[in-house]
């Protein structure tokens, strides 16, 4: 996603283990805040403002680009308040758990033939597993705040994230069946080298065959990142921010970064799974040039998916808790099961 990612990918084969490990850590540590900033600026500040007939920030930096940095500085200056009755350790740990789960997803997202921090055989499995770690952090925050609104928010989040983990995994399953692998890198190559009825002009991005899976994935991502129409855990007008209600300053900033970092990570996952990832269907996929072009291609696709995610966010009202559960269990999960069955049948027949 950044030049540094590419560097680490290029260098990974040459430098000693400890050096590459440091570079990788640095890259991930750099990518998450940058991703949060980019999404926050482009979508939260600008796109949302235009949709709501406002200008958004205009004063800080050219076209308001530095507004989020100013906001970040402001958060850091704020007093760090821990409520008197809060469980101090858990309260302090919770934002870190959320943020770490976000960081961990980035480890497996490939942005070029070598530009990947860790190429795991079970990459997608790992990504979905660590992404659900954030539930723990949110529950911790809700419980430790010693606040009724926070507790309700934490419990709502737990119920919601568990319910939507399932359709998320099942939606990905169709892609996995079609690609025949759990490795994200191989999923990318499978799409670039694939053919549509013998025609390989644009490869075979899985969105063409797995459009149902893509739809379910997007809905589930919306719920995973607790964005409207599934933002009950933070619902400002009901439970006033939910689990975030007692957090101030940089701890609140951590939640904020976690939210946008996760949105970016899931958009990247969607780009890899459904839109062909970093690869272009023509050209030699092992060429080193893709280590430089890959991140750019990825970024374009990620922003396209993120635009969809945020478009929903600014458009829809919020569902009720029971309606959300009903949607997950009675609609999305059966639909994704049907999708898997159909994919399986085609896989066997063709």
């Amino acid at each position: 996603m950044t030049a540094a990612t590419v560097m680490s990918g290029l260098l990974a084969v040459e430098v000693p283990y400890w050096a590459s490990a440091i570079i990788k850590v640095g890259v991930v540590a750099l990518v998450v805040p940058t991703a949060a900033l980019v999404l926050g600026y482009v979508f939260l500040l600008k796109m949302m403002s235009f949709m709501q007939s406002r200008l958004g920030p205009m004063e800080a930096g050219p076209y308001g680009t530095l507004q989020l940095l100013a906001d970040g500085l402001k958060f850091i200056q704020k007093e760090d308040i821990i409520p008197a009755k809060a469980d101090r350790t858990v309260f302090a740990l919770a934002p870190l758990v959320v943020l770490v789960s976000t960081f961990l997803i980035y480890v497996v997202i490939p942005t070029g033939p070598d530009a990947v921090v860790a190429q795991l055989d079970v990459g997608i499995f790992y990504a979905l597993a660590v992404s659900s770690l954030s539930v723990v952090g949110i529950l911790m925050a809700g419980w430790a705040s010693a606040n009724k609104y926070a507790l309700m928010g934490g419990l709502r989040a737990a119920g919601q994230l568990i319910a939507y983990e399932l359709p998320l995994v099942l939606a990905v399953m169709g892609v996995v069946i079609q690609a025949g692998t759990l490795d994200l890198q191989k999923i990318v190559t499978a799409q670039a080298e694939g053919e549509i009825f013998g025609w390989g002009g644009i490869g075979n991005p899985f969105i063409l065959t797995q459009f149902v899976g893509f739809f379910i994935f997007l809905v589930a991502v919306q719920a995973e990142t607790t964005q409207p129409p599934f933002d009950m855990p933070v619902a400002e007008s009901e439970i006033v921010g939910g689990y975030q209600v007692e957090y101030t300053g940089f701890r609140f900033l951590f939640f904020f970064m976690g939210e946008f970092g996760t949105a970016f990570a899931f958009a990247a996952l969607a780009a890899v799974l459904f839109l062909g990832g970093w690869a272009l269907p023509w050209g030699d996929l092992t060429h080193w040039g893709f280590n430089i072009a890959g991140p750019v291609i990825m970024l374009v696709k990620v922003l396209a998916v993120a635009a969809l995610i945020f478009w929903f966010r600014f458009t829809y009202p919020r569902l009720r808790e029971d309606q959300l559960q009903r949607l997950a269990w009675k609609f999305l999960i059966p639909l994704s099961l049907v999708n898997i069955v159909i994919t399986g049948i085609f896989k066997v027949v063709l």
């Binding site: 949302m48 949709m51 709501q52 007939s53 409207p228 007008s237 600014f314 458009t315 009202p317 919020r318």
Partner: peptide
């Protein structure tokens, strides 16, 4: 009422 139900955009249009 739309903003109470979680949709942010209508209230800005209403103010406008």
């Amino acid at each position: 009422m739309a903003v109470q139900l979680g949709a942010l955009t209508p209230v800005f249009m209403a103010f406008r």
